[in-house]
Each structure stands twice: as C-alpha cells, then as structure tokens.
C-alpha cells in the first residue's frame, strides 16, 4: 500500500506530461470560433468599385456558401487565390468575399489582376466592424454558411486544394443534402 502511495507523484507527473505534450503540438493561432452554429451577423456593405455592387447578410441565406475574408495587402490570400478560382470553376457553391481593411481601389485592382472568384464582395474598411462580428483574427479566413445563414465551419489560414477536397467539400456536401 505504502509503495502504491509513493507512485502517486510519478503518476501525476505522467498525466501532466501528456497534457503539456499535447499542448505543444497545438497551433495557438487556431482559436476555436464561438460563432459556429450561430447565424451570420447582420450587415450590408458596399463593394469594391467595378468588381461588385456589395454584399449583405441576406445574400448568405438560401444557399450553402463560402464566405472568404481577404485583402489586397494580404500575402497568404494571394497564395490561396488560385484555389478559390478552382472552387469557383467547380461550381459547387457560391463564394462571397469580405475585403477586409482594404483600400477600395487597391482591392478592385487586386481582383482585376488576379481574377475574381466571388459572386459578391463587401468592402469592410477599418475598423472592420463586420469582420469583427465574424470573430476574425487574421486573413485569410473562411466560413461555411448553411442555407439558413448559420455559420457551420471556420477555416483559419489559406484554403489549399487538399483542405478543399478533404475537409471543406465533405462538409459542403453534407450541408447541401
């Protein structure tokens, strides 16, 4: 019995070690969103000139859609852009853009240069109220919204073809059922 008691500190250490070891492997930037399964915030935004007339929360109802946060200043968004163009080509679902903290002219130029995968775009200039209502922490970030306008999934960081195929597309199919 006494022997067993002596093992308690060792066991406690082992439990802590497992917790800390798991903690080491987690990306602290991936803060889980509290907005999952909540309706999208109400908003109405104008679009970048010549690229879109604007975006409002009403556009996010009726169909499963992808809301993608980007900005012409954002380097990883450029990296993600070809994947969004590919998703647009696939025609699985509409993509809506939130042009975060961007200059309207620069945003429009960026889209003219790199292609515009978005059905509609809203400009959210600083202090980015709509983006903050979406709980964004950085660009790019994307949200899968179901046909009732409820946020169902949040992707932090660029969407790669792999993430689209293996993570997002199965959820889209499920939501479209």
């Amino acid at each position: 019995m006494r022997r067993l008691f002596a093992l308690i500190p060792l066991a406690a250490l082992a439990v802590l070690a497992v917790f800390f070891w798991n903690g080491l492997g987690r990306d602290p930037r991936e803060v889980p969103s509290v907005l999952i399964n909540r309706p999208v915030p109400e908003f109405q935004l104008a679009g970048p000139p010549g690229q879109s007339s604007g975006l409002s929360s009403a556009d996010l109802k009726g169909r499963v859609s992808l809301v993608s946060l980007f900005g012409s200043w954002c380097v990883s968004c450029l990296q993600e852009h070809p994947t969004l163009m590919m998703i647009r080509q696939g025609g699985e679902l509409p993509i809506f853009g939130l042009d975060w903290r961007d200059d309207p002219v620069k945003g429009a130029e960026w889209l003219a240069r790199n292609g515009n995968p978005y059905e509609k775009i809203g400009l959210d200039p600083a202090p980015g109220r709509v983006s903050i209502d979406f709980g964004v922490t950085g660009a790019p970030e994307s949200f899968l919204v179901d046909r009732n306008g409820v946020i169902r999934y949040k992707q932090i960081g660029p969407i790669t073809p792999e993430i689209w195929q293996h993570t997002l597309l199965p959820i889209v199919r499920e939501l479209q059922k």
Binding site: R101, A126, P127, G128, G138
Partner: peptide
Amino acid sequence: ADLARDLRVI
C-alpha cells in the same frame, strides 16, 4: 497589430 487597433477603436 491592426486588429488590436480596430478593437481599441470599438
């Protein structure tokens, strides 16, 4: 960070 500035403003 820009996001921090935005939140300060809000």
